[in-house]
Design a protein around this nucleic acid. Sequence first.
DNA 1: AAATTTGTCTATTTACATTTC
DNA 2: GGAAATGTAAATAGACAAATT
Lengths: 466, 466
Amino acid sequence: MPVNSFENYPMSWKPRRTDDGEPLYLMIARQLESDIRNGDLLPGTKLPPQRELADYLDVNVSTISRAFGICSRKGLLGGTVGSGTFVAYDALANINVTPQDEGGAIIEMGSVMPERTSYEEISAVLKKMLSEPDFGRFLHYGAAAGSLWQRETAVRLLRKTGCETTEDRLLPANGGQNAIAAIVAGLFRPGDCIGVDPMTYPGMKSVAKLLGVRLIPIGQERGEICEEGLIHACDNAKIKAVYIMPDYQNPTTHTMSDEGREMIARTAKERDLLIIEDAIHSLLAPRPNQSAASRAPEHTVHIASLSNTVSPGLRLCYIATPPRYKDALSDSLYSLNLTGSPFLLEIASRVIASGSAETIAARHRELAMGRNAVVNEMLAGYDLRGADECIFRWLLLPGGWSGERFESAASAAGVRVYGAERFAVGKAKPAAAVRLAIAAPESIEELKEGVRRLLVLLRKEEVAKL
Amino acid sequence: MPVNSFENYPMSWKPRRTDDGEPLYLMIARQLESDIRNGDLLPGTKLPPQRELADYLDVNVSTISRAFGICSRKGLLGGTVGSGTFVAYDALANINVTPQDEGGAIIEMGSVMPERTSYEEISAVLKKMLSEPDFGRFLHYGAAAGSLWQRETAVRLLRKTGCETTEDRLLPANGGQNAIAAIVAGLFRPGDCIGVDPMTYPGMKSVAKLLGVRLIPIGQERGEICEEGLIHACDNAKIKAVYIMPDYQNPTTHTMSDEGREMIARTAKERDLLIIEDAIHSLLAPRPNQSAASRAPEHTVHIASLSNTVSPGLRLCYIATPPRYKDALSDSLYSLNLTGSPFLLEIASRVIASGSAETIAARHRELAMGRNAVVNEMLAGYDLRGADECIFRWLLLPGGWSGERFESAASAAGVRVYGAERFAVGKAKPAAAVRLAIAAPESIEELKEGVRRLLVLLRKEEVAKL
DNA sequence: AAATTTGTCTATTTACATTTC
DNA sequence: GGAAATGTAAATAGACAAATT
């Protein structure tokens, strides 16, 4: 029996006790989920303490805790001992953000992708392959790990992005996202925790949600994960790994400092933490930054994808793994894919071996610089983050805009951009910002038109505020 | 304090109580797992009742149950209320069975794959594509769902394998295994149960293990799932789905009867059960058998892969899904892959549209018949299951052979085959049989040599038995 | 056919560690 | 800096249902 009347103490959330046969903890979890999804509980809302709810419903604290656990694992809640449980800021955000084909009605600046080019180097490789007598072998099953020369080729490319590794540590996957999925599925169990930037790559959020792995935002200083935050997450959330994108972090565009990289490598060794290093944009860097994989090779799985720097269509990526994780990763890749396409693997390997991969990456770098020159000029006076060679930018919004509201307004104006909420992890309130995929529009003209439409919105709000 | 002394009552397994800080349930689970993996507890062993173990260790039954649950979810145990808990027959089998390149030292008859052919129809398509002015578009991102004409093409092909569907129900995936992974990850949570044949496709076992989904073997009659078994599994194990391979089931080669298909479709509707229909070999059938997807379209996700009937290298597959699962599947595919290769998708679509897919499949059928004629003759007198157009066969072993022992002996003799244990689910003792991938050896000569080596073993044992 | 064996599920008790005030 | 607030985890108690005898 409840001890007090709660009529006078307003609770931010009151579950209804429906006494059909349904177990209590499921009933509570279900109500909580539906109230969040219906918008009755807004992101950021602090829920009543578990003990208070338990008292109100006349059940045990553990029953509430179990219900909260279910929702928490679905990414709907973020809780901290001492401070309480909060509805996650990204509970409602749709994190599945594939480019949609809407017949050109909308200018795509949402999904990050490189500018479309001719890819003539790749066509040349293909023509050569087609002319070979035993072409059919590429259409048959190939060894899952790829051939030795293919891996040797990849080793040389990786060296150029600051990652020293060896052939026996490489595993091919079907693109960076597939690699992330294989790593999370193969090395973690539901309920395990992985540390991430407070704003992180949505593909990681999406995998974590699918597989029931929890993402823990790590405290930052100067735009990157700091030692204090990392240690704290190790001690408290018991994170088993930390996911980083060291070059041109998605979405903030931040490139990690040498000290930051060194700190993470050192901490990983001290705490036996795994670093998941996503080098998706590393080939864009004019000169390589030394990777975590080179600093702490036994504690890093390094993901080297060609999608955003060479060709999105090849869907190829290599994972460089320490030996102790190799079996688990190869089992996981087997379970998810059986094997990759030996055809694509061969094309990509030849493109890499011939040096064309770097040529193409350099071309994408140049193209991005050209587009960014335009964008920098048009958005002069606004707080626009990101290096000139980066294929996306991070715009901090003026006035009263939130990322979410700006995203909707932009969409209504015919431009797709993604607001900060899509990248936010856990309960922290995201900055007012949007990501601009500057290489995604079909042409410079389209890019200009897109930015022009955004400018209208940016100015309008400022005027309204006066 | 234990009430009785257990010295006189021998228990099949006695955990050691190590009183360091480790939680009891984890200690028990860890010991159990290591004893199984070390071979101290053999497959099929009945473990002591949970209450007996609880009494022995002086802990609560639930603690034992929790520990068993952990091992059970890892696929190490199979338990039934009333009869007890058993060590799973496939606890030790390595289910990751990619073909290994060992320099031709061993004849590959383990991994199922079609015979290697020229694939000249595919080269022709590729040449055509390369000559087109805007070839570069295939190397860029494409719409995740594929274009409308690609899906229309797929619809027409699916119709020819007995599956009536529409374009809006199709989602492309990177091969059949990738489709299975996306379905299991997207539509089920860890702990959910899926019904399967008592001998099932190892790729399914592998995904289930990775994702913590439980496979429940369904009772059979005449080589296929029967109504009684299915109803029983619905009522007791609360299965949410049943996974079937209706044509040329892997590994038993069984093709389901019309009545069996109808029964499953009917039961699925009655019980709101999802049918996961893996049509990986359906194109091999000389005439189509009506699929479950056509019989119970709102209750079936149908997987149509080209790997084993057209080209393993294309890694293309379509999932035909009822509308209610489409969003979840597309999210899951996004999380696992981001997207497929628009290049491979286009090649495959053109191969299908031109009718070459069927031409190639028909060629594989002919080639299989040629090989099977040889195998039938050489193994005359043995119980060899499977139709002549099937690219693998199922050999019931004479004498005292178990599948596992035969597999080892064959491996020592230089032939890779897979024993029944690799396919077995749960605690049921698998038949004494091996699967022979008759299309996998490089040539007919190699196939003959492989079968010759197997014959030596088959005869040897029989002599030893006299 | 009824009693017993057996695994599983929910909810509780208790202890603990961190954060907040 | 210490007490209170708060979430989490382990182990238990008890009820339940299926399978066996």
